[in-house]
């Protein structure tokens, strides 16, 4: 493939390394930047520099943070005995949007993936165990994704935590609110049936 002059090609190469961006998209984004007014481009460059300088992993829960602790860990009003385990920081944002949860969080920074050979030791599981004994946590809600990796992670954590006498629950899987029953797939509907609750 023919390549561009020095810095343009380097820019394309950098974008091409980002997740989900192929060579074509990388080229498109690079040329978009070339056409931008200088100050717009600088704003982007500055924020990248800033984010790398300021943002760290929360020492306690491994969410993104701008100091030692993230805003959830630092918030004294949140219930400290309750922790919700998620795969990524973006899952915290999704759960916070519900305004249903007032406990703490723990970010695993991934999920167990049998297919990729990613096991619990590559995740922040050991840190979770340390927190449970150190912070007086009595209840764990596992909110990993309802896909094969998330389920594997949930099963692993449940096997690990339940014998320790903790209350361990898994967020429910089931039918999307507002949908029609007849359009649900068998797996989802089956889970919704087995996870039904008394009214």
């Amino acid at each position: 493939m023919a390549s561009y002059e020095g810095s343009v090609q380097r820019l394309i190469d950098e974008f091409g390394r980002l997740p989900g961006i192929g060579p074509k998209s990388a080229q498109r984004i690079a040329f978009h930047l070339l056409k931008l007014p200088k100050e717009d481009a600088h704003r982007l460059a500055d924020v990248i520099v800033e984010v790398k300088a300021k943002v760290v992993w929360c020492k306690r829960c491994f969410n993104i943070a701008e100091s030692d602790l993230c805003s959830y860990c630092a918030d004294e009003r949140r219930e400290a005995h309750l922790v919700c385990v998620v795969e990524e920081p973006k899952d915290i944002v999704a759960i916070e949007r519900t305004a249903e949860y007032r406990g703490k969080y723990h970010v695993l920074q991934g999920a167990i993936s049998p297919i990729e050979g990613i096991g619990p030791e590559q995740l922040r599981v050991r840190e979770l165990i340390t927190r449970i004994s150190g912070e007086g946590i009595t209840e764990v809600i596992i909110a990993t994704n309802p896909n094969i990796e998330g389920e594997a992670t949930a099963m692993y954590l449940a096997n690990l935590l339940k014998p320790a006498g903790l209350v361990v629950s898994r967020i429910a899987s089931g039918l999307p609110v507002g949908g029609d029953l007849e359009y649900a797939d068998e797996v989802t509907l089956g889970r919704a049936m087995s996870g039904r609750r008394e009214l």
Partner: peptide
Amino acid sequence: KFGARLEPT
């Protein structure tokens, strides 16, 4: 529309 039908296994 594919729901949970397309997981490995």
